[in-house]
Design a protein around this nucleic acid. Structure first.
Lengths: 221, 221
DNA sequence: TTTTACATTTTTGAATGCAAAATTTGCGAT
DNA sequence: ATCGCAAATTTTGCATTCAAAAATGTAAAA
């Protein structure tokens, strides 16, 4: 009843950016806060280290994993590959109902775009990508995807979203939905790669930042 | 000095099949054998559970993860996707020296094929695939690939290797090397997918087995 | 003879304790 | 005043201990 939650709670703390990348993770403090002893906490930290969210230094405690630019590029590449694979598989297996749900989510996302609501747009965007991965019907793939996106998201970088980029992203999403509806696996795979590549370029251009999100910037994933 | 090894040693025990899939993992026994207390052992088991090699049942201990046919199919699909991605990236980044090393490994593998040495053939085969993934120069990808192949390998299934299949595999490997030498990413990606698909078909046709490897059968990965 | 209820044993999950390593602090010398 | 070194404190890693849950075994009743 204890250990299962602990991993999730610490993961949430890391993803929320409450402990910033590279910062030390104070065992005693977390123990008090979560009202647990060090044993389950340390077990959880080992698990998170295996996931790549935490870095364990022998006799020097654990830190929130600090990702370099190279690490981010690598993760984006893998994310791209996984999404491309998911897209192909999804086209073979997705049901009409699932396509309908994604189409609905897409329309809602486009509405948020028209309203200029970037936060809701990103939320919808993420939901669509996750739905495609889920539609692949491959739990192993879903798990790896979740792990990779978690690491990317944790990086807490910010990127300016220009009107041009935003318009391009929406356009690409139209193509994604279209390919999905035609169940064109190869096509979808191709579009997803381009889509992710564009996103990656934004991110790497922007670099990392510790600043909070302002009007036109937002951490994405 | 303790915990780092423990995960590796237990992983080795699982990969060697010393604890068969589905079997319970006796904590006390392993503690005595590894000469450690339960704390680091349990930490290691949690890590391996996160990797998918171990299954944790609340208040019922841990078991070596039992993979269903579906699980295997899923893992093969992911493996395919990762290798395809690795192939593309490798073609962009691989050095002439690395290509040379892979070509040498390939020639050696073909020699083992000609000699009918299946065990050495598989060893070489695996080395080549790993070299391609490494050549992608993406540690995140390498890590995920290692995790997926470990889970597949651990399944300890056997598959009969017919002369036809073997010949096809070698032929495909010729194509793989060729695409790599031409740095034809798209082509390599395509070939690797087909290659893995064939391998998967063998495996799923054969199903799982607990029997030991005989002359013409061998567990592969 | 079979089944069910209960007590015992075993095993798991978490807390605490202890030794070693690292960081911090304080003191003295230059 | 600053640098260096050593002692003290903190923190980490592992072992041990303790409580709770599950498995097992036994006995009694149908």
């Amino acid at each position: 009843m204890l250990h299962e939650d602990v991993v999730g709670r610490i993961r949430a703390i890391l993803l929320d950016g409450e402990i910033t990348p590279g910062a030390r993770i104070p065992e005693r403090e977390l123990c008090e806060r979560l009202q647990i002893s060090r044993t389950p906490l340390r077990e959880a930290l080992k698990v998170l280290a295996a996931e790549g969210l935490v870095q364990l230094l022998p006799h020097r405690g654990s830190r929130a994993a600090k990702l370099t630019d190279k690490d981010m590029r690598d993760l984006f590449e893998v994310c791209q590959g996984l999404e491309a694979l998911a897209g192909e598989l999804a086209c073979e297996r997705i049901s009409d109902a699932e396509i309908g749900a994604i189409a609905a989510a897409h329309d809602e996302m486009v509405r948020h775009y028209r309203e200029g609501d970037l936060i809701q747009y990103y939320r919808g965007n993420r939901a669509i990508h996750e739905a495609i991965v889920t539609a692949a019907g491959n739990p192993a793939l879903t798990g790896l995807y979740a792990s990779v996106t978690a690491r990317i998201r944790r990086a807490r970088y910010v990127t300016p979203m220009t009107p041009q980029r935003w318009a391009l992203a929406v356009k690409e999403h139209e193509a994604i939905l279209n390919a999905l509806q035609r169940r064109d696996g190869a096509g979808l795979s191709h579009i997803l790669r381009a889509h992710l590549r564009h996103k990656r370029e934004e991110v790497l251009q922007a670099g990392f930042a510790e600043t909070e999100a302002s009007d036109l910037t937002l951490r994405i994933a």
